[in-house]
């Protein structure tokens, strides 16, 4: 093997370390998303999502916000690139082709595009569960993803983790039932 070194001593240990780092990062990103949702920036982003003109009239600088969020997502992309290097050890350009975009779309829309939680919860399920299937079915994975995407779009266009669901769950977990009136605003 050439290129990036193993983090741990043995390849086996390397794999487990990578897994730990990956899921650690997922948790960190999850925490960031949680903080983001409750921050000034996150509220501005929600406002833009619901109504662009209204948000602009409230004083949200859409251009600046967009640039900020793009920088943020590009930072995540850079991190993913490094992780990819450490996991696969060699670069397959075809990995980053259009079917990856398709899978990403499936994850986003099945999870629900209105919140960032959808992708976080659904991605491991959608990617992991097919790995348990027999190879004959696994090879049709993309078709299954496509069909799932179409089904969700037609039957449940909001996805499974909608804003309302997240708020209800959030207020349920934190015990603030009083906050229920927030659902009306969404």
């Amino acid at each position: 093997m050439f290129g990036l070194p193993n983090i741990a001593a043995t390849p086996g240990a390397h794999r487990w370390t990578m897994l730990a780092i990956l899921y650690g990062l997922v948790l960190v990103v999850g925490f960031l998303i949680y903080r983001f949702d409750n921050s000034r920036l996150g509220r501005a982003a929600s406002a833009v999502f619901v109504d662009k003109e209204l948000a602009a009239s409230l004083g949200v600088d859409i251009k600046k916000l967009g640039m900020l969020l793009q920088t943020f997502s590009c930072t995540i992309a850079g991190g993913i690139g490094v992780l990819y290097g450490f996991i696969y050890k060699s670069l397959y350009l075809t990995f980053f082709d259009f079917s990856l975009v398709g899978i990403a779309m499936t994850v986003i829309f099945v999870g629900g595009y209105a919140t960032q939680w959808g992708a976080l919860v659904v991605a491991p399920i959608l990617y992991g569960v097919p790995l348990l299937f027999p190879p004959a079915i696994q090879s049709w994975r993309i078709v299954i993803y496509g069909a799932l995407l179409i089904l969700v779009l037609v039957l449940k266009p909001e996805g499974f983790l909608t804003r309302r669901f997240v708020y209800t769950l959030g207020s349920f977990l934190s015990g603030h039932r009083k906050n229920n009136n927030r659902q009306e605003d969404i």
Binding site: M105, I142, I150, V154
Partner: peptide, 11 residues
């Protein structure tokens, strides 16, 4: 939706 159709066709 169209991308989903495209995924299925290509695969």
């Amino acid at each position: 939706l169209s991308m989903g159709i495209g995924m299925i066709i290509t695969d």
